[in-house]
């Protein structure tokens, strides 16, 4: 009779991959919830991408490490490195982006981005031609994110993230949204139509990897501890002896006589 065996450790064993597959299924349901979230005027602006696999998650984490050393990240370098470790300990990443926020403002003059200036705040700070923002112009981006963006769509992206997180919560899967993960995923080409992406990390393990985090988490974490244990146990093992010539019972008997 076929069964599905699920176990957290060893990482990426068949049983662990079964467990991860189930989290991927939850990620798909979260995507669906994100698409049905309330949105101003019912205007579709959402792009979603679900990423899993050891190599794929490592790529995102490595990109976050790399971003942490850029000059524009100097105030959030620790955040990038700490959260990169959380990616490595996650089962999958759900990237959610607003594909309209940069190039197609809501045009409601709502005031969220610049107050009384209305949408002119965004249009006057971008290369705009024929009444449209020129998506090809990347020259203004001197910061981690290429602003200004339509904040009505950013606010709406919050609803999509909220509905995705609510779904995860309902299914008892740990999930947390991160700016850093979204930036790295976007730079790697995920949610490629969006200039503003948030990465939601998902995990279904005994310990929620997104809370109770020690300082220097990128080097003080369970993966590194296991690697250290591997190394530090192997070295003293060299001092072992031949179990056939020196069985434990014999050795213990000898010891008790000496005592």
């Amino acid at each position: 009779m076929p069964t599905v065996h699920s176990k957290e450790f060893p990482w990426y064993s068949d049983s662990d991959k079964n467990r991860k597959d189930h989290v991927v299924s939850v990620g798909k349901l979260m995507m669906t919830a994100a698409h049905t979230a309330p949105v101003t005027g019912g205007v579709d602006h959402l792009e979603a991408e679900l990423i899993w696999g050891e190599k794929e998650l490592s790529q995102i984490a490595d990109k976050m490490d790399e971003l942490s050393y850029l000059p524009e990240s100097k105030r959030i370098d620790e955040m990038f490195r700490t959260e990169a470790q959380m990616v490595r300990e996650s089962d999958c990443v759900l990237a959610l982006g607003s594909f309209r926020a940069r190039n197609m403002p809501f045009d409601g003059n709502c005031g969220m981005c610049g107050g009384p200036a209305g949408c002119g705040f965004v249009y006057s700070r971008r290369r705009a031609v024929a009444g449209q923002i020129d998506h090809s112009d990347k020259s203004l981006a001197k910061t981690t994110l290429d602003g200004p963006l339509c904040q009505m769509f950013l606010h709406n992206l919050g609803y999509a993230i909220g509905s995705a997180l609510w779904t995860a919560r309902t299914l008892f899967v740990d999930a947390r949204p991160f700016m850093t993960v979204g930036v790295a995923a976007n730079r790697l080409g995920y949610c490629r139509n969006s200039a503003f992406v948030v990465g939601i990390l998902l995990s279904a393990t005994s310990k929620n990897p997104y809370v109770d985090v020690p300082y220097y988490h990128h080097v003080v974490n369970i993966r590194r501890v296991v690697e250290s244990a591997h190394q530090n146990f192997i070295i003293p093992r060299q001092m072992g002896l031949d179990y056939r010539l020196h069985p434990l019972k014999k050795a213990e008997k000898k010891q008790s006589k000496e005592d």
């Binding site: 709502c110 005031g111 969220m112 009384p116 200004p148 963006l149 606010h155 919050g158 909220g162």
Partner: peptide, 18 residues
């Protein structure tokens, strides 16, 4: 503006949405 005041921190706008 027409509905809300600004400018706003983009991440606060997003968080308020959540």
């Amino acid at each position: 503006g027409r509905m809300l005041a600004g400018p706003s921190c983009a991440w606060k706008s997003l968080d308020w949405g959540i």
